[in-house]
């Protein structure tokens, strides 16, 4: 009797369970769709040809394959120059950030260092309170950085969050390793380069991603500090392309481009694709590392 009861009960649970699994799978599939669809839409829109009427809309597949929007993007000087500017601030900025963050974080991870607490507090405080928009602008101006690409790099070259992340990581390395190197006569710099850095590659993968994405996506800094379009980064040019009603600006002032609405739209979309593709191709490979990075930051921070 009780055996029958148990069997019936577990049957019910299994049936409940199956309904849940199905519902949950559908939910997850919907979530994936909702997340990816806008990106998919941009991609198919960018390769849909000129023959598509302005009122005709594509939702699921491109109407016909036409890569002319891309050839236009890659032949437009303002976009190419912006791409170059963004590459410059991303590469130089990330390298400089990694260097300076390491140099700052390493001494602050040493318990024995006099003044460590004062300095860490001094640096951490800037995370909670800052000068604000206008005072910061005035400083950047007084330093002569207006209209230079350095205005997009130097003011954020060290992120306090990333610095704390690195300090916590350095603290977790057993000190015995460095001590033994010291006994062999190595200085602090040698210990950092030879012993500590090789052990820190995973955290550096995370920091590289965080910094590089920050520089790649920088937009507001450029709005604030740049006036000459020669220096504009990709995000700023992208914003102008998206907002502008006609693309004569993008076409470099040449009146011979007579573009239809759809061409304008596909050039816009192609520019977006070009702007997000590098990030889309890189971040999945670093997932293992940044997940760990976020955890260290959340627990200790």
């Amino acid at each position: 009797m009780s055996g029958v009861y148990v069997k019936r009960r577990s049957d019910r649970i299994r049936r409940n369970g199956r309904a849940f699994v199905v519902a949950n799978s559908i939910f997850m599939a919907l979530l994936v769709f909702v997340t990816l669809y806008p990106f998919y839409y941009v991609i198919i829109g960018s390769i849909s040809g000129d023959s598509v009427g302005a009122q005709e809309i594509y939702f699921l597949y491109p109407k016909d394959l036409d890569l002319s929007a891309y050839s236009m993007v890659f032949s437009t000087t303002s976009i190419l120059r912006a791409y170059g500017n963004t590459l410059f601030i991303t590469i130089v900025g990330t390298l400089l950030s990694l260097l300076l963050t390491t140099l700052t974080a390493y001494p602050l991870s040493k318990q024995r260092l006099h003044g460590r607490r004062v300095l860490t507090t001094l640096f951490y405080f800037t995370m909670l309170f800052n000068g604000g928009l206008v005072p910061t602008y005035l400083v950047i101006r007084d330093l002569g950085l207006i209209d230079t690409l350095w205005a997009l790099i130097l003011p954020k070259v060290i992120s306090v969050y990333n610095m704390l992340l690195l300090i916590n990581f350095f603290k977790s390395i057993p000190s015995g390793l460095e001590e033994s190197a010291k006994i062999d006569g190595a200085g602090d710099m040698t210990a950092l380069i030879r012993i500590v850095l090789p052990l820190s590659l995973p955290i550096f993968a995370t920091l590289t991603l965080f910094y590089a994405v920050g520089y790649w996506n920088s937009w507001f800094d450029a709005v604030m500090y740049l006036n000459r379009s020669r220096n504009f980064p990709l995000q700023l040019v992208l914003r102008e392309i998206v907002q502008s009603v006609d693309l004569s600006y993008v076409a470099g002032g040449g009146a011979d481009y007579s573009m239809s609405d759809t061409t304008i739209q596909s050039v816009r979309l192609a520019t977006i694709v070009v702007a997000i593709l590098p990030i889309m191709m890189v971040y999945p490979f670093l997932q293992k590392y940044f997940v760990k990075g976020v955890m260290i930051g959340a627990i200790k921070g």
Binding site: T101, L103, T104, F123, F129, G131, L143, V157, D188
Partner: peptide
């Protein structure tokens, strides 16, 4: 010595603007 560039960064770009407040 390693701390010098970081210190300069925070003083220039974070603490100097606070004077501007």
């Amino acid at each position: 010595l390693m701390l010098v560039p970081g210190l300069v960064f925070f003083l220039l770009f974070k603490y100097w603007p606070m004077y501007g407040i």
